[in-house]
Design a protein around this nucleic acid. Sequence first.
DNA 1: GATAGTCTCGGTAACGTTAACGAGATGTCG
DNA 2: CGACATCTCGTTAACGTTACCGAGACTATC
Lengths: 355, 355
Amino acid sequence: MGEKTDNKKVGIKEIAKLANVSIATVDRVLNNRKDVSDKTRAKVQAIIKEHNYQPNLYARALSVKNNLSFAVLIPKTSSQTGYWDLCLKGIKQGIEEFSTFGITIDIFLYDQEDVRTFIKMSEDVLSRNFNAVVIAPIFISETIRFVEECKKRRIESIFVNSDIKGCSSLGYIGPDLYSTGRLAANLTSYLVPANSKVLILNIARGLQNYAYLNTKIEGYTDYLNKLDRGFEILNIDIPSNNYDEIAIDLLRHVDTINPDLIFVTNSRVSVVGRFFDEYRNIKKPHIIGFDFLTENVEFLGSGMVDFLICQRPDKQGYLALNYLYRHFLLKDVKENFKPMPIDILTIENYLFYEN
Amino acid sequence: MGEKTDNKKVGIKEIAKLANVSIATVDRVLNNRKDVSDKTRAKVQAIIKEHNYQPNLYARALSVKNNLSFAVLIPKTSSQTGYWDLCLKGIKQGIEEFSTFGITIDIFLYDQEDVRTFIKMSEDVLSRNFNAVVIAPIFISETIRFVEECKKRRIESIFVNSDIKGCSSLGYIGPDLYSTGRLAANLTSYLVPANSKVLILNIARGLQNYAYLNTKIEGYTDYLNKLDRGFEILNIDIPSNNYDEIAIDLLRHVDTINPDLIFVTNSRVSVVGRFFDEYRNIKKPHIIGFDFLTENVEFLGSGMVDFLICQRPDKQGYLALNYLYRHFLLKDVKENFKPMPIDILTIENYLFYEN
DNA sequence: GATAGTCTCGGTAACGTTAACGAGATGTCG
DNA sequence: CGACATCTCGTTAACGTTACCGAGACTATC
């Protein structure tokens, strides 16, 4: 025989009967509201614990008529990378799911190359009356200021993609960026032998703002230095979003450095792939980069890129909304979240990767 | 401003009013039951489509009082590997979640080293009256026979962990095993140079039964042979579950072969790790294995094992039940599932891996 | 033309929880 | 002692869907 599962779910009604009170009182105890004497509260709580009562979340979701509203404040996708589209995809999935409960979710997109658009959008958010806001914090000081303002108005905040430690009221959903850099270094150590030349490549306009890049690079260099294999590590910025401009810079650097491996610190790895696709006379180094974008996957599939490290941006977006939903409606979350998994994609497993 | 999401969910009541019928009739149309004239059915359907009516699954789940029952037929966890515990963990999570709806789920565990226990358990399953059964098909011909019997009795079946093509009525949830082997080979090619000696190691009692192993090995050797780097590939079985026995065999083989890399084709990679931990005078090869078991992770963390390939057994178990739940209650599933993602774990990202 | 059967359809109680409302008991202050 | 506030608790209508029950209209049969 197999194990038998006891599926006798006790309901609020059962508890009420056992405690000789009304279901309203049980509800008051469950949601620890007032209007219950200490004595009956203790009695009901005892019975709840004794029978391991678990609320029916579906009934609760059905019953509660809320008018919660959340805001989402993330960069708009640029012509150069579809990264934020992925995040948005997860957000939209969340909207689809949670609109059933009457939750309103508004999306505010800013230009990650123009801090003024962030300030404008954050003011727009404040002008309305949201219960919570999901933020991708690109601009550090401006985000801190914005969250301060939110706290004053009792608007909860949660970060995705990257974190500013201790800033948001509800925490951070995303990968540990330092470990992300270490992982890239770990894979690097498998790809190239000792004394190799390794090029760290930061490609994007307005690079100075991207504090999260430094964390990745730190993890990367710390790991390689500790390995002590005589790697020669160079860190180069190409502050542009234009392929032709980037190609010129790249050509110059690659010519003089002649790297064995290039580590692209963000999702622009496809640009580097395209470069070596065009300049076939140049010796192609190993390439490691970030994010499951179609343009990146293309170069992964052709063997141009060795590893893609992924942080599930869509899942991050979805989880942020899911967390808010649970925070406000289900009240079941106390635990702070662990960092997101860091996925490794190669030519052999990318086909099965989704969300 | 941001995008505004229209959260006006139309309900069955709205539809009824618009169609000048009762909600009962709308319900009949929605669940295409009889007792509706063609004319009113068409009218209601038009209005449903026009207003893009989406049923409130929570209300439905709350309302429906079903007495569905599912069986789960998987190997019991052996002393040698906690693999099936992980699968069971996912199953139990599903039980927890779906018992809310009055679904009864019974677990039947068989001994994967003894086909008779499988036959016994499958008879037990048939003697009761389940609506569906989740099967981990280890014993091929016996499983086929069992599923035939299920079909006669209109019991749905779904496979996890490995597949027998076209056998189960509802499909297969798990990784593509051939690709799994290819991925191991891909990682192998990064770990060792040309002309290396590679040892494929199959460890488990009753190996002859494990058809899924061959698929993995096929993927592995196909990939390496196509690479054409002069790898010397050896395939060795150690049909035992006892560490001391395995160690003796291993010592003999490793001594004569002196491999540069060992590919352990199942979750017993910790045994190999322990071996090289004890025989420190032997040159440690690179090691690749399977599954996120605590004992395996230990050797991943110590650097003894280079890569662990994971197929999320707990998620497989959960998804199987989740699929059944959706199949019977929500009726929303038509799509056949894609293979599960194949995860790569190294010393640098395993900390963030869960379910 | 009475009877029984079939085909449509509407009314409504339930599912488990929430929250508005009000009743009764007790306390407080003049 | 009366007026009023506060504390405690029960009653009950929702939430959106399902499914049982039965009413009315129509058809077939004798």
